[in-house]
Amino acid sequence: MTKTEEKRSFFIRGPWENFASVLIGLGVFMLMQPFYITLFTYSFAVILFGTLMYIVVSHFPEQ
């Protein structure tokens, strides 16, 4: 496998989209959980990062 092909197989949409979705879900949980206020404080950063990541990775090729 050439370096370009390796790069291409790394930037495929599916797994990255799933990772971004997990980040968004984690952020929403942190925002609304009743346990630690520290988690609440950092929740927005996690959701924002996940959402921006989702927007970027949804433009990756499918294969």
Partner: peptide
């Protein structure tokens, strides 16, 4: 941003 993030998962 929270709803937009959840909306992205919804569209998926």
């Amino acid at each position: 941003v929270t709803i937009f993030g959840l909306g992205s998962i919804y569209v998926k």
